[in-house]
Simulated scan of single mutants.
Amino acid sequence: MRFPIFFLFALLMAAGARAQTPPATSWNTDLTAALAQAKANQRPVLAVFSGSDWCKPCIMLKQEVFDQPEFAQYAQDKFVLARFDFPRNRKNQLPPAQTKQSEQAAAQLNKEGTFPLVVVLSPEGKVLAKSGYRPGGPAAYDTYLSQLLTAR
């Protein structure tokens, strides 16, 4: 009798823990696919250009904002997310196909080579705003992005 009760208790605890887990943040690495998803869902694209292993503000933006559960919760119903990374260390190199996709996105949206660069695009691909690192963590960044969306 103890085993079934223990098993049921463990199952309920696992279900409760899963219910509290924030949504996983899914990032596109293909601008065309991100825009197609944005058009289908009528959401803007949040495209991020980063140098994940050499750009200190890029690393800070990722750690302080994009990796936080608060940002995942905020972004899940507001944006289609796209990340284009340009690592320099050999051990961090991306697959050639992904590197090509990042280069194509940069040719369209980041001709200046700015890092980090955050670009908000309409579902049709029109640039609505450009930004970079902003201190204050996910709450401040979420507020800033909300202001950018209402200004459009």
Rank of each mutant, 00 (worst) to 15 (best):
F7D: 06
L12V: 08
A14D: 04
G16V: 08
R18H: 12
R18D: 12
A19Y: 15
P22T: 00
P23L: 05
P23G: 11
S26L: 15
S26V: 10
T29P: 02
T29G: 05
D30L: 13
L31E: 02
A34K: 00
A36N: 06
A38M: 08
A40C: 04
L46F: 09
G51V: 03
K56C: 00
P57N: 09
P57G: 12
P57L: 13
C58G: 06
M60L: 09
M60S: 03
L61E: 07
L61W: 02
Q63V: 04
E64H: 05
V65K: 02
D67F: 08
P69G: 11
A75H: 04
D77Y: 12
L81Y: 06
R83W: 08
N89L: 15
Q93I: 14
L94E: 03
Q101F: 12
Q101V: 11
S102E: 02
S102T: 13
A105P: 04
A107Q: 12
K111T: 03
G113S: 11
F115A: 13
P116V: 03
L117S: 13
V118I: 08
K130Q: 14
P135W: 02
G137A: 08
G137F: 01
A140P: 04
T143S: 15
L145A: 06
L145S: 01
L145T: 01
L149I: 10
